[in-house]
C-alpha cells in the first residue's frame, strides 16, 4: 500500500510517497526526509522533543500520522534560520544558556515560537513557564529557557513594530 501526500516543509512543497501508513510525522522527517533536527525523546507525546509547527501551530510530531497531514505546512528547526542569521528565539537560547545537552532544544525552540505566536503568555514569566511545560529538559535549563522566551518575544515584537512603521 503506497500513499502519496503533499506537504510543504520549511517552505518547500514536496510530494511524499509513504511506504507505510503507520509512519508518524516524526519518523517521516527523521528517517525518510533526512530532517533529523527534530528529536525523538519518548515517542508518546510525553516530552515535547519532537515539537514542530504544523500549519503554524506547535504539535508533537510523534503523535501525528503523516498520512493524515496531506496538504499541511510543516516547519521544523531546520527551517528557522535565515541563511546564517539565527531566528531571535535561537539567538536568545544561546545567550541565556537555555540548553545543556541540546537534545530537547529543537523542540523547546519550536514550542517557544508556537507560544509567542499564540500570544497568550504576555510578558508574564509564570505563563511562559506553564505554557512551556510540555517540553521536558532533563538537564534543567528551564530558567534560561524562560528568560530566552521573554527576550525573544520582546525582540520579535520590536521587529514587528519596526516592520509595521
Amino acid at each position: 500500500m503506497s500513499l502519496s501526500i503533499g506537504l510543504t516543509i520549511n517552505g518547500q512543497p514536496r510530494t511524499v510517497a509513504l511506504d507505510d501508513p503507520r509512519v508518524t510525522l516524526l519518523d517521516l522527517l527523521r528517517e525518510r526526509l533526512d530532517l533529523t533536527g527534530t528529536k525523538k525523546g519518548c515517542d508518546r507525546g510525553q516530552c515535547g522533543a519532537c515539537t514542530v509547527l504544523v500549519d503554524g501551530r506547535r504539535i508533537n510530531s510523534c503523535l501525528a500520522l503523516a498520512a493524515s497531514l496531506d496538504g499541511a505546512t510543516v516547519t521544523t528547526i531546520e527551517g528557522l534560520a535565515d541563511g546564517e542569521a539565527l531566528h531571535p528565539v535561537q539567538a536568545a537560547f544561546i545567550e541565556h544558556d537555555g540548553f545543556q545537552c541540546g537534545f530537547c532544544t529543537p523542540g523547546q525552540i519550536m514550542s517557544a515560537i508556537g507560544l509567542i505566536a499564540e500570544g497568550h503568555a504576555g510578558d508574564d514569566p509564570e505563563r511562559i513557564r506553564e505554557l512551556m511545560s510540555g517540553n521536558i529538559c532533563r538537564c534543567g535549563a528551564y530558567q534560561g529557557i524562560t528568560e530566552a522566551v521573554l527576550e525573544a518575544q520582546k525582540t520579535l515584537a520590536e521587529r514587528n513594530r519596526r516592520d509595521a512603521a
Binding site: 527523521r30 533536527g37 527534530t38 528547526i77 532544544t105 525552540i109
Partner: peptide
Amino acid sequence: LTRRDGVLKVTGRATYAADNH
C-alpha cells in the same frame, strides 16, 4: 562565553547518534 556548540544545537545541526543514516 556562550557555548561553542550553541549554533549547532539551536539549528538542529548538532548530530546525535540516532541522526545518522
